[in-house]
Amino acid sequence: MDYLLDPFQYSFMVRAMIVSVLVGVMCPLLGAYVITRGRAFMGDALAHSVLPGMVVAFLLGISPFFAAVPAGIVIALLMGAVSRRTGISEDTSIGIIFAGMFALGLVMLSRATGINVDIEDLLLGQVLGVSQTDVFVSLGLTAVVLAGLYGFHRQLVYTTFDEVGASVVGIKTSLVEYVLLALLALVIVIGIQAAGIVLVMAMLITPAATAYLLARRFVEVMVIGALVGATSAVSGLYLSYYADLPSGPAMALVATMLFAAAAVAKRGRMARRAI
């Protein structure tokens, strides 16, 4: 028991735990839509594209949230608009914006002087370093995302399953798409704290994919995904504390191992059924 409680004598661990649980729960809730809509590349691109916004925040000496959140939403909307309004295929336009924005962020970071940011923490996450403000902003953003998911649940479900049918009954499918992208941007910004720009994907899609293997219904994918995500994030945090591992990769590895276990279990079950 002491083993579990010991880390919490430090306030930074308490803050890290709160953010880890939020990330673990929230990422798969959006991840469930990302994997069933086949938008994993969009999620990855979105995570990389908020880098310039975060660098601007560091330069201004404010919490990266205040720049990353609007940057994420603008980029999400931009990606949606570019693919809708040009003849270029969606994954191509996402790739262009993704690479361009990430490069811009790296150039800004290399040129920026007087800021104390470890690029590795940005890319791979460092949940042990979150401030009290970060915790409060994460809680606020979580509330916004939960409200958005609840309010638009039926519209999101309808458009994900049958976009044409949804538009015939008068659901504004592009509005629903933009809402989803905006919520995704918010969740990615929360997730970057724990898993970093590169590994936030592991929290966004891996637990949701694990749940997809285990669940029957979509809502079950969300709930099981949130449980798997929280387990991955919290276990990763303990691993990080006791084995002195970087938190983001630790969480990502736990999530990947849980996925592998679920995949093996599912194959075994299917093989038994086939006999």
């Binding site: 069933t36 039926r154 479900v157 399953f161 049958d162 976009e163 049918g165 009954v169 219904r217």
Partner: peptide
């Protein structure tokens, strides 16, 4: 109401019979 072509449905979305019919109330 629109009953779509098979190809325009996202079959990767895990929906039960009940879920799909409930969409009609959306």
């Amino acid at each position: 109401a629109y009953v779509p072509q098979r190809d325009s449905i996202n079959w990767a979305f895990p929906a039960t019979v009940m879920d799909v019919v409930t969409m009609g109330r959306t």
